[in-house]
Every structure is written in structure tokens, then in C-alpha cells.
Design a protein around this nucleic acid. Structure first.
Length: 823
RNA sequence: GCGGGAGUGGUGAAAUGGCAGACACGCAAGUCUUAGGAACUUGUGCUCCGGCGUGCGGGUUCAAGUCCCGCCUCCCGCACCA
């Protein structure tokens, strides 16, 4: 057999083939051995969807996650770094339809492909913990959790106008509608009235907001902000308006109860039940109906168009303003949303731009009630929303906005006409889907007993065989055609009953998967409490920002529900979060149609695993996109081979006493270890790599033209390089480690401890400034006193000459780095 | 429209308020080579060689890429949320 020393040049393909089987045997990344004394850490990468082989995006994400996991392993932690597959979902189903086969085949084939690619990519995964969400052993617990949510009233059905994707022929959650388009297929989303399953995430709105305090500084600020905006809490008041000819008053929601006296009309959402009721039997009913038809036909995209003219129908009905008895005309319009607040508003055109636009379009009166010092909205067409003094407002006159809000809320409450209220932008999570490849909803519909949850003993409720079912999207779940499966007995009364035919949104699967890894094979519970208590919450989560709302919000929700069920004792699942950027090509996302697709397998073939990983990590900060057109994988190969060559040049024996080594290289080594460690901990991986490169350069110089290859400092430096490189380039590092006379696996070698004495320089170059401009430099001791430092600076000939006898006004000294002489 | 982020060499990027451009890519010259898409060395912001330089204009400070105010441009999120 050929040994590595016979290789004169760095041969990445040979090295890759050599080490993989050895690592398989050593299993350096097995976590959770009973006798493991190391402190624990849970590092988690978002699990992949098995849509074909791994691509460049995976290569980046998993390279970054691996740096973190391997760093903490080197730092002496027992790191659990698991992986699995998010395997239910539409792509598999669409592929199955195209190929006319069971989605299971496509899915499990792709999982096998990705698995073998991941092994080759040498991530530090613990392979004993793998599971796929489409395994019955997993989705059994989806169903179990669904029934628990159902018991608690957190899973419920309701009729509602839902987001409908005409392409996928299924409903979508609010979070899956991106700018009016389906997140999956980009079809324009329309509305459809349907009876669907929801999770009551709105019950948790306040906690989802308030608990973010725990995440401050640990999650990207951007993600926290997006979640805050998505939940969109607003503080205001509900006010009751009596409607002429209607017994029940109508409640409206407003954030500006202080402007109540400025209301000049009322608007109800055109697609609300109230609007239909108010229009019924009146002369304008036909006009109203045709208006309703028109807005129903409009897709979300049309609604998104900015400065779209306001439209509406005068219902010829009147509401009475509770504070002054004024008669306000009631209009129906689509600029008021049926499912926010109460679906009805009081319009205060002077102080709300939308109301003003509507008032001007419909020639309705505008009355200023807050004097803001700005121009009259009647003239300018610009509503004044700022603070000011209340006018035309009876008892509120003279108050400021905040004072008026307090006063009017108090008054309304005392009179029984209203009270302060909160509203949220967040809607309940629509979880049912009319598609095949997902978790069947474990509910049986019985004429006698109603909705009955499938009992635990009957779980998992297996997805019926795809054979014989037409999976083509048609607006109804394909499961409905599996008559033998659908027709069942009621678990309660044993009478004839029908199964629910919808499947769950796949985001249900990913909302709790991180809890499953510590006990991934348990057949008796979704997760083991003892294991959860040891490993959770996740110390470090790594994944794309695309999940800023969807997956991360849902996971936080699930965690809180499980906390309330006393199954967990923490309320936030992910302690720290890192969002990596995307891999793009020539400035835009890679796609086949664009013709800028870079195949990961080609890149790995041409440059090797380590060079691709290194290129991903070194290209810039992890949050930024990597433009593959800008990176140089061949540059990475070159660097790795330079590092590799050092290991062949070291002429001292393993175990040599480093303390006898040449001091300046020793200092460079310890500084590199210190700085690279700090950089990794602050997610500046590119900087960490730069520090290693510097050390490689310094070591090369030491060998060629310095202390020579036999000096212990050269071995110390090269070993440090190998260990630091092991985070990014595991194959090269392992090969170096062997050539240095050590046994595998370098992944467990341990981060060398940094000697603080070696971090102090003998001499530092200080800059001398006059009025902030650099005039000279001098070498000083790092612990020079302020007085000596100033004296030395003022004694420099160039400074003496420059000053020409003038007395400095002030001298700022920052020993040992800088003196600034102010004249 | 609202909210947020970012603008630094030819390129990717560094820089606890304290030497702007670390580390690379690219490019150029050289050494060694039969050869080089190898290795090594050197150079590489601009410059009229005094300086000038971090999108533009102001400000705070002994000192600003960094902090504050106002613009411009680009990117992201939300989008009639009353």
C-alpha cells in the first residue's frame, strides 16, 4: 500500500478515500455515551429537504455549522451534532405524479443520495440519531401531538376565507404567501372559503413577543424584528356604535380613540358578514353584490399594488357616534380587512391617510380634531398623524394625544361604550393540506360524536398506499379516494365514521424535530424527558434566513405549548441562532433556467471537499451571500497544499518540548490560536482562516529562512495549524496530523491551550501624531509608563524639529500604541 | 408607504473611536525549471510625491470607516393591520 509520504504533491482525492473508512470505524462524533465526562453542547443544522442531491447552498450551510461543532469538540465539549431529513412535502408528490410512482421511492432514494454525499462531505454528524419525518415512527408523534393540541383546544376547525394556491391546489398558511405568491410555485394566491384545521398560535402572541427578550443579542436582530412585525401587536380601543335599524351595536377597533370626534363615516369590510347583512334587502344590494364579486376576483397581487384607488359602496345606512350622537354614513370597502380587529372601522380622514384617500374619492367630509401645526389635510390631501392639541372634541379639547386617549378610554369604559383592546397581525396557523405526501390528520368524523381524535393506541395512523390513488392536485385530498381507509369506526361509539382526509402542513414536522434527536429511536414517546433535560435547548442553531418567520416562529410556538403541557422546562428552543447567506452565481440565485447553476459534485470533483469547504468559509462573513463567481477554489487548494507541505518538513519528533522553541514563531502560534478561537466564537470564520494563513506563512518562512525545520517551534506551529484547519478542512488536517506522527482522529486532538505569556510582544511600534496626523513611529516596551511614553515621544528628533520650540497644548498618550500631540 | 440593513482598492473582504485596506483573489515583474495553469520572491488604493483617500454634505472628538444629524444609492422584510 502506498503511504502518504510517497506523495510529493498534495493529493486530495487520495486523502479523502483514505480517511473516510477510518473515521467510520473510529466514530469520533458519537455523542451521549454514558461514561462521557465532557460538558454537553447541542449544535444543530437545519435539516435538509431531500430534493435531489446536495447543492452549493447545502455545502455552505453545513460547512459553517461544522466549523462551530468541530470547534466546540476541540474545546473539550461533548457535542451532539445530529442530522435528519425533512422528508414530507410537495416536491416528492409532484415528482411522483410525473413519474407515476409512489412518493416514498423518490424520497428515500434522494435521502440515500444526500446521505452518502454528506458522508463524503465529512460533516461531524452523529449518524446514530438520523430519522426522516416521513417515517411512520416519526409522524406517529406528529399525530400524537396533534391530538394533544386538539385536547387543549389549540387545534380546531373553522370556516374562513383562506389562501388558496391554484397551482398546488391546496390551501396555504399566511406565512407561506410571499408578496401574494405561493412560496412553493409562485402562483398568484387567491381566496377561497373553506373549513380548515388551525393551530391557535394567536393564543401565544404575547408570549412569542415577550419571550424574545431571552433571545436579544443571541439571535440576529433582523430575525427578531421580522418576528415582531409579523406578530404585529397593536394597542387601541374597541368602541360600540349603534346602527340605525339594527338592535346590536357594531364594535369597531381603533388605535386612535382620541380622534373619535373626528369620525365622519364608518367603513365595514366588504367581504364581511356584517356588510352583507347591512346591504341585504336595501336598494343598493345589487350594486353591493357586484362590487363584492369584483373584489373577490382580485388576487392578493392586485391588492398589493400601491396607490391603488380606493373603492367602495355607500350602504345608505347610518351609525351613531357614541360621543356626540352624530349620524355617520356606513360604507363597504375592501380597504378594511374582514379578519383584522372587528372588520369595521370608524373613519377619521383628517388623521388617517387611508380614510382621507377614501373621503376625497367619495366626497366625504374631513374634520380636524388634533392641531398638529401641519397644514390642513383638506387642502394637502395628507393626513396629519402626529401629536398635538385636541380641538372640536368636546371634553377632550386642549388635551394632548396621549392624555386624550387615556381620558376617552376611561369615559367609554364608564359609559359601557367601549374599552381598551389589543390586536395582532398574526393569524392562526392553517395546518391542513389537500395533498397526499404528509402526515394524515388523526381525526375521525362521526355523525353522533362529532370530531373524535384517534386514540394513542391506534397511532400511527398510516398513510394509505399511494397505489391506486390519483395524486394529481384537484382541490380535494387524494386520501378521500382511499375509501377503505376513509370509512372507519368511531373510536368512541364504534358506529360508522369517516377519517379526516387532509394531511398536515410539513412545517408541523419541523416544529419539534430538534426534540427528537436525543432519543430519536424511542417507540414509546416523542422524546425522552431525561435526554431533553440533558441536551436541550439547542445551544447553537444554524440555517437560512428564509425561515426567519415560518419555521422559527412555529418552533417557538410548539416549545411553549409543550412547556405548558409540562413536557419541557424551557420556553425557547434555540439559544443562539446563526443565519448563513445564500450561494449565488454572478449576483443572482442559481437556477437551471438562468443557466448559472454550479453543480456541487463537479466542484468537489475538481477541487476536493476541503477546498470547497474552505472557500465557503473564507469567502466572507457567514451571514453574507457567497458569490461563487468571486471565490477561488483553486486558491484554496493552493493554500491547503502549502499547509500540508509544512507537515512533511517538520524535522523534530512528536512530543518535543515546545518551550525550547524559537520565541517569535511560538508567539505567532499562540496569537493565532487565541485570535482564531475568538474569531470562531464571534462567527467571524473568515477572519479565523486568515489568522491560520498568517501562521502558515510565518512557519514557511521559519523553515526556509529562519530557525529551520528542526526547531520545536516549527512543530508547535504546524500542529496548531493542523488543529485549527480541522474545523474547516478535516481531510487535510488529518493527513497532516498523521505526517506529524500522531494517531487519528485529529478532530479529538483538543485545542492547544494558549500561554498568556506568549501573547505579550517584547516591543510594540507606537505612532506619534501631531494634531491627529502621523509624524513618526518608535518601538517601545508594551508596558511602558505613560510618563516615559510621553517623554520618549517628545524627545524624538523629528518631533522636536516639527514643534520648533512650541509648547503643546495637550498630549494624549495611549501607551503603548499612540501619542497625539495637540498644538 | 412603514420597518430594517448596507455602501471601504480591479475583486472577496479586515479594522474594542487610536497606523484604513489584515488575509486572499486577480494582475505585474523576477528566481528555479525542457516546460508550467507548479513552487518560491517582490510589487500592487490614488498621487502633481506635498499630500489625498472608507457613497455625498454637515457635526461631536485630541482622534471618526466606526458615534450624531441631513441627503443619495442599493438590498431585505412587511404591505390598506385602522
Amino acid at each position: 500500500m502506498e503511504t502518504s509520504s510517497e506523495h510529493q504533491a498534495y493529493d486530495f482525492a487520495y486523502v479523502q478515500e483514505k480517511w473516510l473508512p477510518i473515521w467510520d470505524k473510529l466514530e469520533p462524533f458519537k455523542s451521549g455515551r454514558a461514561d462521557d465526562p465532557r460538558p454537553k453542547k447541542y449544535v444543530l443544522d437545519m435539516f435538509p429537504y431531500p430534493s435531489g442531491d446536495l447543492h452549493m447552498g447545502h455545502a455552505e450551510a453545513y460547512a459553517l455549522g461544522d466549523v462551530i461543532a468541530r470547534y466546540w469538540i476541540q474545546k473539550g465539549f461533548n457535542v451532539m451534532h445530529p442530522i435528519g431529513w425533512d422528508a414530507f412535502g410537495l416536491p416528492a408528490e409532484n415528482a411522483a405524479i410525473k413519474r407515476n410512482e409512489d412518493p416514498r421511492i423518490w424520497t428515500y432514494e434522494n435521502i440515500a443520495t444526500q446521505k452518502s454525499s454528506m458522508r463524503r462531505y465529512a460533516c461531524s454528524f452523529d449518524w446514530d440519531r438520523v430519522f426522516n419525518t416521513c417515517d411512520p415512527e416519526y409522524y406517529k408523534w406528529n399525530q400524537w401531538l396533534f391530538t394533544k393540541l386538539h385536547d387543549r383546544g389549540l387545534a380546531y376547525r373553522k370556516d374562513s376565507a383562506v389562501n388558496w394556491c391554484p397551482g398546488c391546489q391546496t390551501v396555504l398558511a399566511n406565512e407561506q404567501v410571499v408578496a401574494g405568491l405561493c412560496e412553493r410555485c409562485d402562483s398568484a394566491v387567491t381566496k377561497k372559503k373553506l373549513n380548515q384545521w388551525y393551530f391557535k398560535i394567536t393564543d401565544y402572541a404575547d408570549r412569542l413577543l415577550d419571550d424574545m427578550e431571552q433571545l436579544e443579542g443571541k439571535w440576529p436582530e433582523k430575525v427578531l424584528l421580522m418576528q415582531r412585525n409579523w406578530i404585529g401587536r397593536s394597542q387601541g380601543a374597541n368602541v360600540n356604535f349603534v346602527i340605525e335599524g339594527r338592535t346590536e351595536p357594531v364594535t369597531i377597533y381603533t388605535t386612535r380613540p382620541d380622534t373619535l370626534y373626528g369620525a365622519t363615516f364608518m367603513v365595514v369590510a366588504a367581504d364581511s358578514a356584517l356588510a352583507a347583512e347591512l346591504a341585504a334587502g336595501s336598494p343598493i344590494e345589487a350594486e353591493f353584490n357586484s362590487y363584492l364579486e369584483k373584489i373577490k376576483a382580485a388576487s392578493d397581487i392586485d391588492r398589493l399594488a400601491t396607490d391603488r384607488p380606493k373603492s367602495g359602496v355607500d350602504l345608505k345606512r347610518f351609525a351613531i357616534n357614541p360621543v356626540n350622537g352624530e349620524k355617520l354614513p356606513i360604507w363597504a370597502s375592501d380597504y378594511v380587512l374582514a379578519d383584522y380587529g372587528t372588520g369595521a372601522i370608524m373613519a377619521v380622514p383628517a388623521h388617517d391617510q387611508r380614510d382621507l384617500d377614501f373621503a376625497r374619492a367619495m366626497k366625504l367630509p374631513v374634520r380636524v380634531v388634533v392641531e398638529t401645526g401641519e397644514e390642513d389635510p383638506n387642502e394637502t390631501g395628507i393626513a396629519t398623524t402626529g401629536d398635538g392639541k385636541l380641538i372640536n372634541s368636546g371634553p377632550l379639547n386642549g388635551l394632548s394625544k396621549d392624555e386624550a386617549i387615556t381620558a376617552i378610554n376611561k369615559q367609554l369604559e364608564a359609559d359601557g361604550l367601549g374599552k381598551s383592546a389589543r390586536n395582532y397581525r398574526l393569524r392562526d396557523w392553517l395546518v391542513s393540506r389537500q395533498r397526499y405526501w404528509g402526515t394524515p390528520i388523526p381525526i375521525v368524523h362521526c355523525d353522533k360524536c362529532g370530531e373524535v381524535a384517534v386514540p394513542d393506541s391506534q397511532l400511527p395512523l398510516l398513510l394509505p398506499d399511494a397505489k391506486g390513488l390519483d395524486l394529481k392536485p384537484k382541490g380535494q385530498s387524494p386520501l378521500a379516494a382511499a375509501t377503505e381507509w376513509v370509512n372507519t369506526k368511531c373510536p368512541k361509539c364504534s358506529g360508522p365514521a369517516m377519517r379526516d382526509t387532509d394531511t398536515m402542513d410539513t412545517f408541523v414536522d419541523s416544529s419539534w424535530y430538534y426534540l427528537r434527536y436525543p432519543s430519536s429511536t424511542s417507540a414509546t414517546e416523542p422524546f425522552n424527558r431525561e435526554e431533553i433535560d440533558t441536551w436541550l435547548p439547542v445551544d447553537q442553531y444554524v440555517g437560512g434566513v428564509t425561515h426567519a418567520i415560518l419555521h422559527l416562529l412555529y418552533s417557538r410556538f410548539f416549545t411553549k405549548v409543550l412547556y405548558d403541557m409540562k413536557m419541557l422546562d424551557f420556553t425557547e428552543p434555540f439559544t443562539r441562532l446563526l443565519n448563513q447567506g445564500m450561494v449565488v452565481m454572478d449576483g443572482s440565485a442559481m437556477s437551471k433556467s438562468r443557466g448559472n447553476l454550479v453543480r456541487l459534485s463537479d466542484e468537489l470533483e475538481n477541487h476536493g471537499v476541503d477546498a470547497i469547504r474552505l472557500s465557503m468559509v473564507f469567502s466572507g462573513p457567514p451571514e453574507d451571500d457567497v458569490d461563487w463567481a468571486d471565490v477561488s477554489p483553486s486558491g484554496s487548494v493552493k493554500f491547503l497544499s502549502r499547509a500540508w507541505r509544512l507537515s512533511g518538513d517538520v524535522a523534530s519528533a512528536p512530543g518535543v518540548d515546545f518551550s525550547k522553541g524559537e520565541i517569535s514563531l511560538r508567539k505567532a502560534t499562540h496569537k493565532a490560536l487565541n485570535d482564531a478561537g475568538f474569531a470562531v466564537e464571534s462567527f467571524r470564520f473568515n477572519v479565523a482562516v486568515a489568522r491560520v494563513m498568517e501562521l502558515v506563512n510565518a512557519t514557511r518562512k521559519a523553515i526556509d529562512s529562519g530557525c529551520g525545520p528542526a526547531d520545536p517551534a516549527v512543530r508547535e506551529a504546524t500542529e496548531a495549524i493542523a488543529i485549527m484547519l480541522s474545523l474547516v478542512a478535516p481531510f487535510t488536517a488529518e493527513e497532516m496530523w498523521e505526517r506529524l506522527g500522531h494517531k487519528p482522529a485529529i478532530a479529538l486532538a483538543g485545542w492547544p491551550s494558549v500561554d498568556p505569556a506568549l501573547l505579550i510582544d517584547d516591543e510594540v511600534e507606537a505612532v506619534i501624531q501631531i494634531n491627529g496626523k502621523i509624524k513618526d513611529r518608535m518601538n517601545v516596551s508594551p508596558n511602558i509608563s505613560e510618563a516615559d511614553f510621553e517623554a520618549a515621544a517628545l524627545a524624538l528628533p523629528s518631533i522636536v524639529a516639527e514643534l520648533a520650540g512650541a509648547a503643546p497644548k495637550k498630549v494624549i498618550t495611549r501607551p503603548p500604541k499612540l501619542v497625539n500631540i495637540v498644538l
